[in-house]
């Protein structure tokens, strides 16, 4: 196999699914870092976002690319409502109860999608998109857009966290919640903001998953393990960690096909998760260990 083939068949798909994992892992790492629990409904939140976009494409005849920001906004709103209704009342109880509640929410979200859109796989638009050659690199336009949009979203979020008042408040809350409260940071506002970001990015992850392959009701749940592995690999609470972690998991998954039967692609995320917990539980970027 030539180097170019390796890139076209393994590295590019790896980076694409890696950026999708990264978008999901950012939300997971923010929730883990700021609200301090593992959110198991995150994958199904991505599924919901993808299907909301599908609904917009189908009913309003929108272009998928126009539907994407709307679906992100709707999913962000859903995330805030889910927190209000199902998670917030557990705030003062052991965090693991919220983890459990999120497992229930995962099931509920999925069944809503199954009832509304059915269980058959669907696509945003039919027809085969040919890959174009860029000096031997074979890329489809949707892959370029996926990569560009994911990069844009990540840079925007990082700038927000670095330079804005509320971005700093989120970091402060993740760093030292008691002190943040002593500084007058409103816990509720930060929680809401966290869910807006996590929900919107989850929807984007689901959408890109759907547009690069197909939509099915298990897609988010199947990606959940990879997203968690990415968040922990990068370091819990670290956005840049989630991005690097996502890309690493995506690449390793694709490259694993060279040595393992392709059915076991998913297992590589698990292996990476266990290895990182064994050798460096704080992750690459020295995140939190809860």
């Amino acid at each position: 196999m030539s180097g170019l083939e390796l890139i076209n068949f393994y590295v590019i798909p790896g980076l694409i699914s890696g950026s999708i994992y990264a978008l999901g892992a950012i939300g997971i790492t923010l929730i883990f870092g700021i609200l301090r629990y593992a959110h198991f409904a995150h994958g199904d939140m991505a599924t919901l976002g993808a299907y909301v976009a599908l609904g917009l494409v189908g009913s309003l005849a929108l272009s998928p690319w126009v539907a994407l920001p709307i679906a992100m906004a709707i999913t962000a709103l859903v995330a805030v409502v889910l927190d209000r209704v199902f998670y917030r009342h557990l705030e003062t109880r052991p965090k693991i109860l919220t983890v459990m509640a999120s497992l229930g929410v995962a099931l509920m979200l999925r069944s809503v999608v199954q009832v509304v859109w059915g269980v058959d796989p669907q696509v945003y638009s039919t027809g085969i998109v040919r890959a174009e050659s860029y000096g031997g690199l074979m890329l489809r336009s949707r892959e370029l857009i996926t990569f560009a949009t994911a990069t844009g979203l990540v840079l925007f979020l990082m700038a927000f966290l670095r330079y804005t008042r509320w971005g700093k408040a989120m970091r402060a809350m993740s760093d030292n919640p008691e002190l943040a409260r002593l500084c007058g940071v409103n816990n509720e506002a930060v929680t809401r903001l966290t869910w807006v970001i996590a929900g919107a990015l989850a929807a984007a992850a689901g959408f890109f998953l759907g547009i690069n392959t197909e939509l099915n009701t298990m897609m988010g749940w199947s990606a959940l393990l990879a997203m968690f592995a990415a968040a922990i690999l990068g370091g819990v609470g670290r956005v840049e960690g989630a991005v690097v972690g996502g890309l690493v998991i995506g690449l390793v998954e694709e490259l694993s096909v060279l040595v393992l039967p392709s059915q076991y692609k998913m297992a590589t995320a698990f292996v990476i998760l266990i290895l990182i917990l064994l050798v460096r539980p704080q992750g690459i970027f020295k995140g939190k260990v809860l």
Binding site: I96, V99, L225, Y264, M266, F270, L273
Partner: peptide
């Protein structure tokens, strides 16, 4: 052995993985 050093969230994630791999 690997996950019980941490909070139970990690065990939960790992057990999801184990169940998934057994299924695979």
């Amino acid at each position: 052995k690997v996950t019980l050093r941490f909070r139970s969230d990690y065990l939960a994630i790992a057990t999801i993985g184990v169940a998934e791999i057994i299924r695979l």
